[in-house]
Design a protein around this nucleic acid. Structure first.
Lengths: 115, 115
DNA sequence: TTTCTCTATCGTATATTTACGATGAACGAT
DNA sequence: ATCGTTCATCGTAAATATACGATAGAGAAA
């Protein structure tokens, strides 16, 4: 026992945390929804559907692109964004496994006296 | 069309983003795992299992408590932390629904020319 | 070519996050 | 009462995130 202390986090832990970070803003949660509903969507359309300036939307898109959740195709002056299906499925199963394992181990909780 | 623009985000979007934020650090991903594996755990044990100072671990625990993913019971000078099962199950199904809906809408992706 | 549209990036301001040492409060044990 | 243990909080420094206006570049359209 008492291993770690200087030991770093695992790749899995870092991956899950990074995806969670990419989804840690309501705008990015919504962008994912919008992109999936519309199949694909220009950046400008997203700007119209969000209460944010164009530069800000572009930044959020960049963060989602960073982790691979979406991709953007240049189409003339426009950019067509869409969900990256492969990554989405990996993320879906990875989080499902993570949450299911958390549920598994737990049988007894602490006393109700929550601090 | 082109509704929104000043419209705020929905409660659902804010909730998912907030949970994602709580899980957006490897230490917090790991703390959830450790608490579920050990059923319940003193703060000091977590400190020994993480490459972080006691004050920092306490901060991470606070963030997880903030969104209700864990709870802590005072037991004399110690505090016994554990996963909040009800919240965990809500979060599990909420994220499952979110990801499944994202997968549903998508059939066609953009051209491969990812920018 | 000039102009227009679309989007990424720059610059910047503000707020939040992360991390740690130090301190203090709560409690058990002596 | 005093001491040791456990943990939260304070103070603080550095890094990161969020937001926007302004600008620049890449094409389409004229």
């Amino acid at each position: 026992m008492a291993t770690a202390k200087t030991e770093n986090f695992t790749d899995d832990e870092i991956f899950l945390a990074d995806i969670a970070k990419a989804l840690s803003h309501p705008a990015r949660i919504k962008i994912m929804k919008l992109l999936s509903e519309m199949n694909a969507c220009m950046c400008g359309e997203l700007v119209n559907l969000l209460p944010l300036a164009q530069a800000t939307v572009s930044q959020h898109l960049k963060e989602l692109k960073r982790v691979g959740l979406i991709q953007g195709d240049i189409d003339g002056p426009k950019v067509c964004y869409c969900v990256n299906l492969e990554m989405l499925q990996k993320v879906t199963t990875d989080f499902q496994n993570y949450f299911n394992n958390l549920n598994k181990g737990e049988k007894i909780s602490c006393k109700p006296k929550t601090k």
